[in-house]
Structures are given as structure tokens and as C-alpha cells.
Design a protein around this nucleic acid. Sequence first.
DNA 1: TTAGACCTTAGAGTTAGGTGTAAGTCAATA
DNA 2: TATTGACTTACACCTAACTCTAAGGTCTAA
Lengths: 126, 126
Amino acid sequence: MGYSIKTIAQKSGLSQYTLRYYEREGVLPVVARDVNGNRCFDDEDLELISLICCLKDTGMAIADIKQFIALSKEGSDALSDQCRLLQEHKQHIEEKIQFFQSFAQKIDHKIAYFSSLANEAKAANS
Amino acid sequence: MGYSIKTIAQKSGLSQYTLRYYEREGVLPVVARDVNGNRCFDDEDLELISLICCLKDTGMAIADIKQFIALSKEGSDALSDQCRLLQEHKQHIEEKIQFFQSFAQKIDHKIAYFSSLANEAKAANS
DNA sequence: TTAGACCTTAGAGTTAGGTGTAAGTCAATA
DNA sequence: TATTGACTTACACCTAACTCTAAGGTCTAA
């Protein structure tokens, strides 16, 4: 009979607050309700939430995710737009990976430099 | 005779507001002043700012950068601590790279899936 | 039949990280 | 000498992304 918000919070790693906030903001499409008005998530929702987390954690702003999700409501006409957005975002991720790799190197150099200073200081003290 | 805040803003890509904010917050060590009380940056400052940007852009929080910078004031005793912090942060960066790579893949799968849906829709329309 | 666990909404509060404004100092220039 | 432009401080304001609170509804087990 679908998942409660508590279950989805556990499965997704998002808090219940965040899930409600996402629905309110249109980051999540409106979630189905049971007879008591309680949210009733299904596996498709869970899959979508996983994609949303993936986009968010790779640096996509909430507002942009919202736009992406809004396209889902327009059906198959919008599929190519959704593809384009994903492709653009993938480009960003790849740039970030490059960037992070070069920064990891830079930090490596710093570590080497700091180590040599630390060793000098040790030698001077002995 | 050193660089003005304007020059450093241009060279670093940070705004003057941000540079002042960083100094205020202790993210930057206190900057030297000229006879008029104006900030007077040198190449060492510029080098440090570049490291700070690198740490920030790879996801280190301002508060943690501040801690790292504070250790600089303790001289050579703190060098090994600074090394350790950098090493830990490099670890984080490498995890992030992994993470981003796996997410890029996931997004690739999504793109393939959305493309196939888009093609189906096109075929159905023709 | 009441206690406890779960859910709901509306709306306020928080945090990080800036960004902008106001009022003033100083030095060079028309 | 008056104005222009760059700088200063103190402090207020802003945005994104949550996070919490209050007040209440519903279900289940003792």
C-alpha cells in the first residue's frame, strides 16, 4: 500500500521535513495520499527521489531540479528538453571532476611543501 | 608597494566584500595596512587566497578553512596538524570524485532511458 | 478510553555565505 | 578648492536550503 514519509525518509536519506519541503516547492511532484490524507509514496516516487538526490548532490540548484521535474508533467513532448538538461548537467559534473582533480594535485603540492617545512623545523630543533 | 583590495579582487575572482568578510571572519589572516589604513596585500597573501579558494571550491566550509588558517599563526609546531587537515580534505575530494563519476554514469543511464522514451513517442506520432 | 505513535498544515526560525548601505577619510586632479 | 574615486568601518540585509514549532487529526494496542 505504498510507503509512508517515514519509510521514504529512511530509504532516501532525506529528512521528512525536506521531503515535505520538496513537495511544497515543486521539487517533487505532488505525492498521492491515502484515505487519511497521509502521503503514500510508490517505487516510481522513490526512483525519482533518487534522481533528485543525485542531481542535488552533484550541485544542481533546487530551482533547476524543479524546472526539470516540471517538464515531466508535460509528457513525451518534453522528453528531449529533459535529455538536454541532463546532458548539460553531466557536462557540469565532468568539469567539476576535472577541477577537483587539479585541486587535489594542488593540495598534494601544498602537503609536500608543508611536510618539508615541518621536517626542517624538526631538524633545526634537534 | 603591495596590492590594493581592488587588484586582489580582480586577481582572485573574489569580490571586495568577500575579501573583507574573510578577513573579518578570520578566514584570511589580518592583512597589512598602508599609512592611510588601506589594506596592502602581498604575493604571499595572494598565494594563500588561492589556496583558500581551492579549499572552498572543493567543498571545505568557511569555518574549517578558518581553523586551518589559525594554525598558520602557531608557526612550525602546527605544520604537521596543517598537513593532516590537508590530507583529510584531499581524502574528501577523492571521495567526491568517485561519487561524481558514479553519478555521471547514473545520469548517462537516465539520458539513454529518456532518449528511448523520446524515440518511442516520435515513432508513435509518425 | 486513553496513551502513544504516526501523520497533517501553516508559518516561523536557522545557518552559511555572502552582499549592500551609510557615513566618513584620504589623495589626486580639474 | 572642490570634486572624484578608492578606500575604510559598522551594521543591516539577502538568498538558498532547510529545520522546527504549534495545533491538530487518525489509528492501534492496553
